[in-house]
Design a binder for these strands. Structure first.
Lengths: 229, 229
DNA sequence: CCAAAAGTGTTAACTCTACACCCATGA
DNA sequence: TCATGGGTGTAGAGTTAACACTTTTGG
């Protein structure tokens, strides 16, 4: 109890969405036993440092990224050999970001940073593949009952972006008409009035998610909730 | 990073249900800065000890209790002063038990153990009130989509037990007929054929929850799901 | 005028909600 | 026979699911 010698790390699983694919942010380790390998951009918590501060700091230090959405995911510490350096537990966080709005840069412990498509991930050291799996599961279940999908899109988006985002995350087909009807019924999207050309075909109307309105509604008992046949 | 000196604790929030009330299991501290105060029956994780083993061990050591249901709840580590002894993070667990089937006994660090009714809790030291609040929130949301209520009842129960359990947990009225219809529609309850006298009035039929059947159904895509008007 | 993606409505099936009376038992 | 809690059905409202054609644009 006096000299416990367990170390505490934090590991962010940051998801990004772009062009119909889901990505994870990884860094290449510059030092240590996994030098040269791709890993989650985490690290050790400092003495007297709050956990949420530690994740944000590591993320910023190693990748130059600051994300708007970060929530605690799970604490990994049942496998005491998860890290070869000793008994280290890791508090994993789920982060969401829009890759287009970020300028990733490798720093400190990282010799490289990159986005990896979720179903083309390399074999990662430690239990990092497992941590990512947990993150994906959380994301998949949470998009049903919280409007967190919008954190993966830019501020302005076309309806089909949202549709495809849900298709990609859930890995299943969804009915365009029913989806649109349901989402619009919440009254949380505003048309900007602009149209956006999406390559070919008819341009789509540009929408914004009204976060302020959502907060109000939520605190008066509203629940975002969407199901798929 | 070498001498990080953060300590790691685990704290179980064990709920028990009896006679229409929800209880929490607390111990009275025998040693330390909070000597004589009621706290969650947690403690420090040992070197090379898995987290889930640590919670179960602390719970057993201090209260003589072994619970069937234990899930990781949340890791508290944003307030670095949550414990006056230094920088200590706590991984909280949610436990469910049936008080009638347990023989609580104070041991090791505990000079006393007891069940406290959820809305008559004393002021607890550390952030233990906050941890319990988180546990209750989890319990309240989880009974909607997982059949964990049954872990709070004995193996055999009368329908009104289940009804009252939900009423107590959710702190709202529920419609008896609609509730019964919905629960029975899952086909997960079996009548034992017996009747149980519940004090006065007509005796109720005794049911058992078929855990085996639930596991099967769940793995083939079934979701337990119940809402209340 | 062709290809591509956006935008739109209806119906049937199902689920949810609200609601009140009879039944079995013990005192 | 009374008090107490157990057991039961239905109709209207609301929600979900399934499904295909027209519109706008660029090439």
């Amino acid at each position: 109890m006096d000299s416990q010698n367990i170390k505490v790390a934090v590991d962010p699983v940051v998801f990004g969405y772009e062009n119909g694919s889901l990505f994870i942010l990884l860094i290449k380790q510059k030092y240590g036993p996994m030098k040269g390998k791709w890993v989650l951009p985490g690290g050790f918590v400092k003495y007297n440092e709050p956990l949420s501060v530690a994740v944000a700091r590591e993320l910023k230090e190693e990748t130059n990224v600051t994300v708007d959405y970060l929530e605690q995911l799970f604490t990994f510490g049942d496998d005491v050999n998860r890290d070869p350096r000793g008994h280290i537990i890791s508090i994993a966080y789920l982060g969401l970001a829009n890759p287009k709005q970020l300028d990733i840069q490798a720093n400190t412990d990282a010799s490289d940073v990159n986005w990896f498509e979720i179903n083309k991930l390399p074999q990662l050291p430690f239990d990092h593949n497992q941590i990512i799996k947990k993150g994906l599961e959380r994301l998949q279940s949470k998009v049903h009952y919280k409007p967190i999908g919008f954190d993966l899109l830019g501020d302005e988006f076309v309806f089909s972006d949202l549709e495809n985002l849900y298709r990609t995350i859930l890995q299943k087909e969804i009915d365009r008409r029913n989806f649109r009807k349901k989402i619009l019924s919440f009254g949380l999207l505003e048309e900007t009035g602009e149209l956006r050309k999406t390559g070919s075909g008819r341009p789509g109307a540009v929408y914004r998610f009204n976060k302020r309105k959502y907060s109000q509604l939520e605190s008066s008992g509203f629940h975002f909730d969407i199901k798929f046949a």
